[in-house]
Design a protein around this nucleic acid. Structure first.
Lengths: 241, 241
DNA sequence: TATTTATCTTGACCCACGTCAAGGCAAATT
DNA sequence: AATTTGCCTTGACGTGGGTCAAGATAAATA
């Protein structure tokens, strides 16, 4: 799984040059510590649309950080129904839920062309024991993950859930230096609906209503938020405030 | 916040004598390490029914481990509606979601007479840096927490959600050495309903249906699971398998 | 440019579940 | 023992949102 032969990815490999350092694992690390972290990071060649990074039930070895694009994590229940646990933006980790059971719970799949950094979990644990700032950041990111999942369970009505979802995306893109009001959703309606436990038709109708109410404009995956405050009021601030 | 004056709680303070060591923070620690952990644990005097351990928005200083009884964590949204994030059984940690934002997100409240161990989070971080086994257990418990919250978002229909909830309780009590089929729910219908985002009336009707279908028997908070496999089939195994 | 294929929208229908209201039961209080 | 209070159950009714089916748009492929 070495990538020495992949010129493009290795040249962008170093955390210190990545631009996501303010959000990702290296947050809070000094130059020295970041060097040590870089030594255990494995960059991978890009994934094409809809390719798996890992599959549910595979042995857990690595956690992943999104370098570019978006990934979704998906579980399949006993009835064969898929459910999307989450979408992961650049600088976000996924695979953390596999630490406890020591195997992947979900399958991680790229949306569009996307790339990751893989990090061997044993190496990461060892390094975190040596670098207090890395340990702190890992705990912090896992805490955030807990919070994110919990927030999802609070929203109730379909319009609340969709508004909340849009707002979390907006917030996360903002943190990454992108516009918080002009967003390319990347994922199809079906995926949004699935993630929020509703029908794709409901998403469609709600987007229409949100447009009528002057909250946003949307055309396919091209979203323009017009009334951020109005959306927050609708969402009840559960996810986003 | 010292408890030197509380004879009962201090006499049961030591992790090595607690009986929950197989589930709680000390899991995987040797005698030496457990001693070090014991030094930063603060036991508190018991909470009466419905008393808060901490409140939302308070500054985060400690995480808590349940010693006896049950606690619930509750958030209040912008409309003033309460939502129960989770119930916490002996040996489980709560307050972990406060690490990232450095303040408590939820309010933690006792159900019936219950008690906790408080652990100063800075001390815990420092100790985790020194004790690899403690660090590993903390990561593991946080990963589990992520998994638990995610599992909740998968269930869809009301009967699935209720069956899943009962099964997770059953599983958790079993791990604690209690019966997996005879459970005292402790919490009122209203709390169960709130936690699962449904009406208390629906919980009532579903319990009736579950009884009619021979899945369980219930009288007030006294639950007897008759057909564990049937419940698992109903739940779609999302939370419990 | 035409044709296929996937995605999104819109309408009609219906059911699971929420809401409202009344009554039963058990625990707490007097 | 009697009364109050809170919790649970049951029924009647309405609705949010799911399902099904048909079109519309856009993207992919020929």
């Amino acid at each position: 799984m070495s990538n020495q032969n992949s010129a493009i990815t290795t040249s962008f490999l170093k955390c210190s040059q990545c631009g996501l350092g303010k959000l990702c694992l290296p947050l809070g690390l000094d130059y020295q510590d970041m060097n040590e972290l870089e030594n255990i990071i494995e960059a991978s060649s890009p994934y094409k649309d809809n390719q798996p990074v890992y599959r549910a039930d595979q042995k857990f070895e690595r956690i992943f950080a999104v370098k570019s694009g978006i990934f979704k994590t998906v579980v399949i229940d006993a009835n064969g129904n898929e459910h999307i646990l989450g979408f992961h933006l650049p600088g976000e980790l996924f695979g953390l839920d596999a630490i406890y059971p020591k195997k992947y719970i979900s399958t991680a799949i790229s949306l569009g062309t996307s790339s990751v950094c893989g990090i061997n979990y044993n190496d990461l644990e060892n390094l975190a024991g040596k670098l207090p700032s890395l340990q702190r950041q890992l705990f912090s990111l896992m805490s955030k993950e807990v919070h994110t999942s919990q927030a999802m369970t609070v929203e109730h009505a379909a319009d609340q859930k969709l508004a909340g979802f849009i707002l979390t995306l907006s917030e996360r893109y903002k943190q990454r230096g992108y516009s918080e009001t002009r967003i390319n959703l990347m994922m199809p309606r079906r995926d949004i609906a699935n993630h929020l436990n509703m029908a794709a038709e409901t998403v469609s109708r709600l987007f229409k209503r949100f447009q009528k109410d002057g909250l946003l404009e949307i055309k396919r995956t091209d979203l323009h938020i017009i009334d951020l405050e109005g959306l927050k009021r609708l969402a009840g601030c559960a996810s986003a405030c």
